Simulated scan of single mutants.
Amino acid sequence: MAKATVTFEDIGVTVTVPAGTRMIEISEKVGAGIVYGCREGDCGTCLMVVTTGADDLSEPSVLEDKILREIMAGKNNRLACQAQVLGGEISVRPA
């Protein structure tokens, strides 16, 4: 199975994870500062900045693309609840 290396710049932690894992799941497990309000109906709070390896994440879904446009996110922003790792090396930080 393909693996990816993910670095959370805000806490200086790097982990290796299986491809297909959502970024929010990884963030929760390592205690990174990417917060989320999905369960409270506050979509868009898990916004993160991808500083390295954007091509190693899944393409934004129609829903993610819609939300990113609504909140006027930058081109290096993704929603951690939607972005899945594909492989390679990825670095992120909270937006």
Results as ranks from 00 to 15, higher is better:
T16M: 11
I26S: 04
V49N: 15
L57A: 09
G87V: 04
E59N: 09
I71Y: 01
A32V: 02
A95R: 11
V49K: 14
R93S: 06
E28Q: 13
Q82E: 11
P60Q: 06
S27Q: 02
G33C: 09
L68Y: 01
G88W: 05
L68K: 01
P94Q: 10
L63Y: 13
E89Q: 15
S61P: 06
E64H: 09
D56N: 15
R22M: 12
N77F: 00
V13K: 15
M48V: 03
V30I: 09
K66W: 07
T5E: 15
V85R: 03
S61Y: 10
M48S: 02
C38L: 10
L68D: 02
L86C: 07
A95C: 08
C43L: 11
P60F: 06
I24C: 06
K75G: 00
C81S: 13
T5K: 15
D10H: 06
V92I: 12
T21G: 08
Q84C: 14
S27W: 00
L47G: 01
F8P: 01
V17E: 15
G41S: 05
E40C: 08
E70G: 00
P60K: 05
S61K: 12
L47R: 07
A95W: 13
L86I: 09
G37Y: 08
E64L: 08
K29I: 05
D10V: 08
K29G: 04
E64N: 10
M72A: 15
D56W: 15
G87M: 03
A83Q: 12
T51E: 07
M72I: 11
V30D: 05
C81L: 12
P60C: 06
G87C: 04
D65F: 05
T14F: 03
A83N: 12
S61A: 12
T5I: 10
C38P: 02
F8L: 06
L79R: 01
M48Y: 01
G53S: 04
V50E: 01
